[in-house]
């Protein structure tokens, strides 16, 4: 029963917000032109590792190639980590003005993943003043690693994990955007009794726009569960880097202590520590194709 409660509350909460947005839209149709929505809070649909408030416009297809290399402290022999690489590929699509979805595959635990991101509130001024933009991300991931012990009874459910995130962002002028991201990660199977199946964390991220093409981004997730007794020492992921925007491409080049590129991995399974030098170079390349123009 306890397991059911949380998603139900979550749906009620989001449904309530939906309704608000809806009535606002229909009732104010005549005034809609006077509402000035904030755009380009972030350059890309990701801050660095995690999702940003940005969505794709309807009809846009985003092909993303992401890499995280080995750790800098693995030394010159491994070319400071560049000899080793983790990759994540994804295809993401804007379905409507408020909904996008994507599927991906990463070699971290050989995981397939899918997500939807939908807008609940949009920052605006003019006829309707809204101080923040709010979106919801839901995603599921399936690890396809071979079972460590094929002789025991293995369950398909053990491969799955889920993520729910509430993205709350505000653009403070052209220069600065900030986002707070309360996140919930559920893992169906964990290693020991000391490892929580449910992880709660708060992410904070931001962008400082340096030029029209370059911005400086940073992102941090704080894990609310106590990590002291977990069977594996986990650290909070911190990423710092730049966005370089060149027309249809966005390059994100950064340093991070996490290996995985999906929420389940970088929130709950970051075993690298900045203090110890387990820092990885990473990049995301995003290429947007316009399949059709919005009507």
């Amino acid at each position: 029963m306890k397991h059911l409660l949380l998603p139900v509350v979550f749906i009620m909460f989001t449904a309530g917000l939906f309704a608000q947005d809806d009535t606002g839209n229909t009732r104010n149709n005549s005034r809609k032109k006077d509402i000035e929505f904030t755009t380009e809070t972030f350059e890309s649909t990701r801050i660095l590792n995690g999702h940003s408030i940005e969505r794709l416009d309807p009809g846009q297809l985003d092909f993303r190639i992401s890499h995280r290399f080995g750790t800098l402290n693995s030394g010159a022999y491994n070319f400071f980590g560049l000899d080793q690489s983790n990759i994540h590929l994804s295809l993401e699509y804007g379905i409507t003005k408020w909904l996008m979805a994507g599927v991906g595959r990463g070699n971290y635990e050989k995981t397939f993943d899918g997500f939807t991101k939908f807008s609940v509130l949009r920052q605006s001024k003019g006829a309707r003043v809204m101080p923040v933009s709010v979106s919801v991300v839901t995603s599921a991931a399936m690890s396809t690693l071979k079972w460590t012990d094929p002789s025991r009874t293995n369950y398909f459910s053990s491969r799955l994990s889920y993520v729910g995130q509430l993205l709350i962002a505000r653009k403070f002028g052209d220069f600065l955007s900030l986002q707070v991201t309360p996140s919930y990660v559920h893992r169906n199977l964990v290693a020991t009794e000391l490892d929580p199946n449910d992880l709660y964390s708060i992410g904070v991220g931001g962008r400082i726009k340096l030029t029209s093409m370059i911005s400086l981004n940073a992102e941090y997730y704080y894990l609310l569960n106590p990590t002291k007794y977990m069977s594996q020492k986990v650290y909070n992921p911190l990423s710092i880097g730049v966005d370089i925007y060149t027309g249809g491409h966005t390059f994100q080049l950064f340093f991070t202590n996490s290996q995985a590129m999906i929420e389940k991995g970088f929130i709950g399974e970051t075993t690298g520590s900045w203090a110890k030098g387990d820092i990885r170079f990473g990049f995301n390349i995003s290429r947007i194709f316009i399949l059709h123009y919005p009507k």
Partner: peptide, 29 residues
């Protein structure tokens, strides 16, 4: 269109979360 989409999003959400398990390897094996 918007209603259909929001309903389908919520349904997807319910389906995904209905298969939640709270297992750990020590207790399961």
């Amino acid at each position: 269109k918007r209603i259909i989409l929001s309903v389908s999003v919520v349904i997807t959400f319910i389906i995904l979360f209905s298969s939640c398990y709270y297992d750990n390897e020590e207790a399961l094996y």
